[in-house]
Amino acid sequence: MDQFINVTQQLFKGFGENCFIFAITLLLALPLGLIVSMGSMTKFKPLKWLTKTFVWIIRGTPLMLQLFVVFYIPPLVSNGSFSFPRMQAALIAFVINYAAYFSEIYRGGIESIPRGQYEAGQVLGMKKTQIFFKVVLMQVIKRITAPIGNEIITLVKDTSLASVIAIPEILMNAKDFSMEGLIWPLFYSALFFLAFCGILTLLFSFIEKKLDYYKG
């Protein structure tokens, strides 16, 4: 029983790190993704090209490698005189990675809005920003709720990858127990993820229902 409590405590402590990465990543990557998506839709060719390349690189390489690059490359290049703290490095990698994925979801959502919606706003004398925020955005949000929800649930599990730069997250703690001869904490840790993803699933079906007051 003592052992169970100890394991639970340790796993909770680890899961706290996962939740922290999760929260900060969402908080920063959701708006950053919007900026990136603007870049990939701009008519200014060099910026568009640059953004597309960025998204290609980020989506085209493993998040694990990105974690390595953010954490190890600065100290290797500066011979140890500059490095991000581990958690900061993890957050930078996660935010950039998820912003790239979110930006593509936003882009898909924004481009799926019929041109007539923009034109209706234009002939009513609305400004570009007004059309975006007052007319298009809500419709985009409704359309991207499902794919964003999907991505967010993937993020919950991806936070475990932070262990490659030795963030003591839940899976790493669970593995440590197996080094001490306890196997079950590894499987027990699954419950934490399942519970968290379960809550998120409920939350998203609630949001989708909320947004269901209109069709189109």
Binding site: P114, G116, Q117, E119, A120, Q122, V123, L124, G125, V135, M138, Q139, K142, Y214, K215, G216
Partner: peptide
């Protein structure tokens, strides 16, 4: 300039939300 004109579209283009 646009405010001098109004336009009703073939496909209505109402704001669904």
């Amino acid at each position: 300039n646009r405010l001098h004109f109004g336009l009703v579209f073939q496909s209505f283009n109402l704001f669904p939300q």
